[in-house]
Amino acid sequence: MNKAFVKESDGDDDDELGSEDIKLPAGTKNYITTGGYQRLREELAHLMTVERPSVVQVVSWAASNGDRSENGDYLYGKKRLREIDRRMRFLTKRLEIAEVVDPAAQPNKDQIFFGATVVYSDKAGEEFRVTIVGVDEAEPLLGKISWISPVARALTKAREGDTVTLRTPAGIDELDILEVIYPT
């Protein structure tokens, strides 16, 4: 059967956001720090003003070379354009729904809320330092955890010196809060 009559997916569905589409809990806002918001805006601006025009230029040049079916520059360029457009749509949507929170303006600096950096230890005595940030700026390997993560939820509203319970698939752990820090 002719491909024109069959809906087949080649894995390049433009409407799918893929792994970058992090779901927020229903009825919640997309909290983000001022720095995180700025980084997303800068990435979007870079894609719009630098990267996309550069790829469009390459695709245009490759298309002018004739046969497009075996033209690697053209095929790769079109694929890259889809990726850039998908990321630009994602960033635009996330920036539209973002609720920017300045952690330095937090009035209760002795309690853990969004934007706080927390030093805690687990039952084994191992110390951890994490900063609670938005889902779009979380980097767990760098100590930036999303406010919807289990650790952040366990720590939220606790104070220095408190012990909180963290429920994980591996079991229950108790975390001792050693220090709460907010940017100034």
Rank of each mutant, 00 (worst) to 15 (best):
K78S: 01
R80E: 12
V50M: 09
S19T: 15
S54M: 13
R82Y: 01
V133Y: 01
V55S: 06
G18C: 05
P53T: 01
G66L: 11
Y31W: 13
P150K: 00
G125T: 05
R89G: 02
E139L: 15
K7Q: 02
Y74V: 01
Q106R: 11
N71M: 00
A116F: 09
V58D: 00
M48C: 12
L44W: 08
D85Q: 12
G27D: 06
T117N: 05
V6L: 07
R68K: 13
N65D: 04
E126G: 14
I97D: 05
Y74N: 02
R68D: 00
F128W: 12
G125H: 11
E8N: 02
L75H: 05
S149D: 07
V135I: 06
F5W: 07
E126C: 13
E20L: 13
V6R: 06
A104G: 00
G18N: 00
V135A: 01
R89D: 03
V101G: 04
S69L: 11
T33M: 02
I22F: 06
T34W: 04
D13C: 04
D73A: 12
H46E: 11
I32M: 02
R41V: 10
E20V: 15
I148E: 06
I112C: 10
I32C: 09
A124T: 13
R86F: 01
V151I: 01
G77K: 02
S149Q: 04
A45N: 15
A152G: 07
I84Q: 03
E43A: 14
Q38R: 12
L47D: 06
I145D: 11
V50H: 07
T28L: 02
E99F: 10
E70N: 15
D85V: 03
I148T: 10
H46P: 10
I132F: 04
D122T: 15
K144W: 14
Y74G: 00
A105K: 15
D14S: 10
S19Y: 11
Q57T: 07
Q106I: 07
K78C: 06
L91K: 07
R80L: 13
Y31T: 09
G18V: 02
D12M: 13
T131G: 00
S9C: 02
E127V: 15
L17W: 03
D136L: 11
P25N: 01
L47W: 03
G27T: 09
L91W: 04
Y120S: 05
V56E: 12
S60F: 01
